[in-house]
Amino acid sequence: MGPIGEDQFFFLMQGLKWTVLLAIVGFIGGGIFGILIALLRTSKNKVARTITAGYIGVFQGTPLLMQLFVVYYGVALLGIDVNAWIAVAVAFTLHASAFLGEIWRGSIEAVPKGQTEAANALGLHYVSRMKDVILPQALKISMPATIGFLVQLTKGTSLAAIVGFIELTRAGQIISNQTYRPLLVFGIVGAIYFIICWPLSHAGSGLEKRMAKAAR
């Protein structure tokens, strides 16, 4: 058994950096495309609604691990050489946009119909109606579910190890193999995930309680 010293800890922190970066990239990319998906999913255009429903169905109905595989190896099969970083960023963006799109579709539809009617009666067009009236309210409604998904996504980044990414979990595995102290190493790794995810979950449920109170 080897000791767990500064070097090992530094290695874990390097992994943590990638975990956090992946979660941020997935969340930002997924957020941008997710809004687009949610808007198309709630549009009047039937084709747009059907296509986005299919997109959401595919990405919600298949494992994230498989999605990572397909993007990483599938794109390589097309003869395009992508580095792991881009492939993983793309896969997480696709994955997150499907889930966030569906969460936000529900939130948009949860905004009372009277809001759309009032905006229409005032003559507001689609862009202003969405930007100024519906989306701010929908975003607020979606906060607990959105934060919940961000927690899932952060933990889901561990799957990036499969395409050669040395993020937190993979870093833990390597240290564990070096030191033969799996329990201690993965205890530390677990604690690090917990320190990131628990405050998020806590903030989410706090928001939920506050909103439930405000709605009463």
Partner: peptide
């Protein structure tokens, strides 16, 4: 044409 609704429908976030 202006309209006033039964349930007011003010925008609650502004």
């Amino acid at each position: 044409v202006g309209m006033v609704f039964q349930s007011f429908n003010l925008f609650p976030h502004i």
